[in-house]
Amino acid sequence: MSRGLCFDATSMLKISHLSHSFGAHWALKNVSFSLEKGEFLFLSGPSGAGKTTLLRLLHGALPVQRGAASVAGFDLTRLSGRTVPLLRRQVSVVFQDFKILPERSVYANVALPLEVRGLAPQHIGRRVRAVVRALGLENRLDTPGGELSGGEQQRVAVARSIVVNPQVLLADEPTGNLDPELSLRLMDIFMQFHAYGTTVVLATHSPELIRRHPDARLLRLEDGMITHANWPGGEVFRCADGGLHLGGGGNGPDPCGLDAPGIPGGSGNSGSSGDDNSGSGAPGNPDGRLSL
């Protein structure tokens, strides 16, 4: 059962009590947070924490099972085969394994999302060349993707995702296959892009990257729950299941509440978050709110 969400104009990404299971295994448990336009969020956590599941949900690769989510104005609980392509025209994704077409040139790879939108060839050419130049790939335009180095392939994947100027950019371990120097260069590109107003969600294992960007928001996921948050200016609640919930106060009286019985650690919280929170490691905050 999904909860209704109140979407305001500035909310680019809003998820509420999102849970997702693969068979009996719950990959995400009752996760809630929201991001406004132009915010940058690091998702950290060990392998299997639920980062990739969350990103896959956010671009419609997985259906929402429990909870509610909205990205770039699209209600993810109501996505259909017809609306998924429209969502993906607003939400770009960069993967750790690049996902570029090895037999097609750099130009063809970067131009792909623009061709899909039916733009005129001259317009496509201008956009592609500008982005490729910004990423230092202008000399490799005609090279097939399969002949590029790992770093170059990753830059092609990034170029493909930013060439359409998306509202939301999701990146799943984009620096996972790169050396430290290339990782930092790629992060600079993401930060520049974010500076133009794109909302970025970047999943990473690298503490170094996170340390270098202390102003960005941070969520740490473990076992499908948010266990740590750096959320300047936001409200954070600790619930009985040990997870944190962010900005939940605006959605209703119970940020920790769960409608879905059967989610581990979740059932029974509804309507008693105040008591639970006060007894679950939030001393000095009788209403359960943590100061971060």
């Binding site: 998924v84 392509p85 429209l86 996902k99 792909l112 899909v116």
Partner: peptide
Amino acid sequence: REEIEILQLVGARNWY
């Protein structure tokens, strides 16, 4: 398969 997946990821409609 991968090409189809990539086209879906960049927002291509099914007919495309």
